[in-house]
Nucleic acid binder design. Structure first.
Lengths: 163, 163
DNA sequence: TATTGTTATACTCTATAACTATA
DNA sequence: TATAGTTATAGAGTATAACAATA
């Protein structure tokens, strides 16, 4: 497509069907920009895998956090996930409605819910873990086994430094 | 840990004001998860800097791409930014309205616009570049000068592999 | 017929503030 | 007074499909 016989036209972008060569300039060397592009690509890839099993990609972190911290409250969960508690309400509502998460009131403080995984939630999380494993294998291939530990350490340092 | 000896209360999370210690389990070792957390922290930090000069963080990439490719069309720009062309319409509308970007029709193909920076756009981009420089300095400090090149290479490999 | 850019529309994700019920 | 969770609402940011003008 757009072959053009080599430079018959005088313009750099004869037809410009949207696939013209674009210069990224200094953008190409900024860590921030490359971080965003890499994360977007990775998230898209994981989204695709999780949609194949009929699950939202964002549910993976939530279900894992509940599994690892049975009895956790919604507020604590929100903070761990880095979101406001009000953002969690519809998510939990969905997970409870679909029988993946159990909510029970405590006696000691009847304002809070204690969250835990229902059996269906454990099964869904297992399926999401398969997705994550596949995804991680793809990432590891891109990162390379030698650099993985160092790469992880760098990512953690970035998160720690900019918070 | 697991000190308990103090243990006046019988529960691990007496009041739970949302700051309880949370276990991240396997999440903590997934590259995908750490990539997301790092990118979110970095994006938040850049957002703060750009909001301080009254600009949306997302405008930085757009203005840079236009500056580096004067005469670029909206469709080409959209593809370079990885978004649908319809997503670009309100963004460009805003930039043109504020006098940062110039749009002119071409003679050769009167369907397309040719985009370029107006003087005000060049000035705004310069200010955004100062933000980006500051941001990049913070990132570089977290990454470390030795690892920077390797880190960038890894990010690019991830983006290339998962697309 | 195909493409550029716009419109109409809708969906996701997120936050802020006000509210309730408890504490 | 303060906190847990909900509600109402709004704002980004994005996409899909249909469209008018042009190729």
């Amino acid at each position: 497509m757009t072959k053009r016989k080599v430079a018959a036209g005088s313009r750099r972008k004869r037809h410009d069907n949207g696939s013209a060569v674009v210069k990224f300039g200094p953008l190409a060397d900024w860590v921030g920009f490359n971080l965003r592009v890499a994360q977007e690509a990775a998230f898209q890839a994981f989204s695709k895998l999780s949609r194949e099993i009929g699950e939202h990609p964002g549910r993976f972190a939530i279900l894992t956090l509940i599994a690892e911290n049975p009895g956790i409250s919604q507020t604590t969960l929100s903070n761990a996930a880095g979101r406001d508690k009000s953002s969690m309400t519809p998510v939990l509502e969905d997970l409870v409605r679909r029988g993946l998460v159990q909510r029970r009131k405590t006696d000691s403080d009847r304002r809070t819910y204690r969250l835990s995984l229902a059996p269906a939630g454990t099964r869904t999380l297992a399926k999401l873990n398969v997705c994550a494993r596949t995804h991680e294998d793809n990432l590891d291939r891109a990162v390379g086994p030698r650099d993985r530990a160092r790469f992880l350490r760098t990512l953690r340092r970035i998160a720690a430094a900019l918070n």
